[in-house]
Structure formats: C-alpha cells, structure tokens
C-alpha cells in the first residue's frame, strides 16, 4: 500500500502533523486542540457542514473557513480563535439553542451533553439572551419500533441520517424545508433487523432527540417550579 504522506501545519502556534488531505478539524482534535463542532463525522466522505461552529482562520485567506471542510496543506498556518470567529460561533450556537427544547432532567444525554460542553467552551449560557425561544410544538414520530424521534429537541445536524444510511437500514431522512425541516422515518418497512441492532442514531445524536423506546424517563420533578 502507498504510504500516506504526512505534512506539517501550524495551529495556534503549535506544529501539528497530519495526513495529507485530512481536514483541519480532525488534525486539530487529534493534536488535542479543541474546535467546537456539532455536525462533523470523521468517517463521512462528504462533510455535512451545517452547524457552522468549527470556523477557523487561515493565514492568507480573507474570510473564516469551516475546519470540517478544509483540507490541510503543507505549511498552513491556522488560528482557531479570534474575535471574528468567536462572534460567528457564539451567534450560531445561540441560534441553535434558541430552538432546541431543553428538558435536561429527562434527557438521554444527561451527563454527557455536547451542547452544554460547547456552551462552556464558548463561555456562554445555554439560554439565548437575544432571541426569544422558538415555539415549536411538533408531534413526535413514534412510527419506528425501536426509537422515538423528538423534532423539538432535534438540531438538524444530520448525523443520524448519515449513520443510518452507513450502518443501519438507511430509512430515515430529512423532510420539509427551511424552519420546518425535520427528520422523518414515517413507518417505513424494515426489511432487515439492522435497525434494531444498530441503534447508532440514538448514540450519535448530540441533542437527545432520538430516544430509545425502552428509555425510562427520570421521574418528572415538579415541573411547575421549572417553568
């Protein structure tokens, strides 16, 4: 087999070696340099690029670029933080949080919430201050025998769609468009048992929107006080 060429780039002043063609995001994460991201999947052939969090600046380039789509090049000088980048990330994250329905006590991702981690990294609150909460009260999709999909929690990162097509039966997809976009399964016929075995969509969801049917909700604490 052909040996993969290793090249060296500089991220935030640190020399990082990476495989040729690797995207900046993975080179940075491998080197222990954090770049917030929500929709990136390393194995995906085509980066989805929807969350717009992983912006970096590259010397010699005018605008910020997404680290998940930009391949490393020899001698590249990358900065993962600047005022401009910070503003883009914070606004994008605030926009996401203004419509993600938070039910942290009853969330399957409790204790390992990626959203919370990003909020901490960015140094901002989970609750958006500038935008009113988007009131979406969409019905759950309960047509799958193994999981329930909650569109009110979903942040539309597309990871479940990718993983289902990659490892499961490929029976979920985006439906509608714009602000009405949801993930749909809609009671399709499962030909194999891959869906039951994989459960990958549940594992990969950063928003706790894919809920296994056997997931027992933590007893609801007096919700009146929470409101």
């Amino acid at each position: 087999m052909e040996k993969v060429e290793e090249i060296t780039i500089k991220i935030d002043g640190i020399s990082v070696s990476a495989k040729k063609g690797e995207k900046i995001l993975w080179a940075a994460l491998d080197a222990g340099i954090n770049i917030p991201n929500l929709c990136a999947v390393r194995e995906a052939k085509i980066p989805f690029g929807s969350c717009r969090l992983c912006f970096v600046e590259i010397e010699g380039r005018t605008g910020p670029v997404t680290a998940c789509t930009e391949p490393v090049k020899e001698g590249m000088v990358v900065r993962t933080d600047s005022d401009r980048i910070s503003r883009l990330r914070r606004t994008a994250f605030e926009l996401i949080m203004a419509y993600h329905q938070m039910e942290c006590r009853n969330c399957i991702n409790r204790g390992k919430c990626e959203l919370l981690k990003i909020a901490r990294d960015l140094g901002i609150k989970l609750k958006s201050l500038r935008f009113r909460k988007r009131q979406k009260v969409l019905p759950l999709d309960e047509t799958n025998p193994f999981f329930i999909y909650d569109p009110n929690k979903c942040i539309l990162c597309g990871k479940c769609v990718w993983v289902c097509h990659e490892k499961g039966e490929g029976k979920i997809d985006f439906a509608f468009r714009g602000i009405d976009t949801i993930i749909t399964y809609k009671g399709d016929v499962l030909s194999e048992q891959k869906c039951a075995l994989s459960g990958e969509c549940i594992k990969i969801c950063p928003a706790g929107a894919m809920i296994p049917r056997n997931f027992s909700l933590i007893k609801k604490v007096d919700t009146k006080n929470e409101m």
Partner: peptide, 13 residues
C-alpha cells in the same frame, strides 16, 4: 420560506 434549512445561520438567523 425558501431556505433549504440545512445550515444554522440561514435557517435560524
């Protein structure tokens, strides 16, 4: 109405 809904800045912003 015409946003495809994929990326956050366009869909939500």
């Amino acid at each position: 109405e015409e946003s495809c809904g994929k990326c956050v800045p366009c869909r939500e912003g």
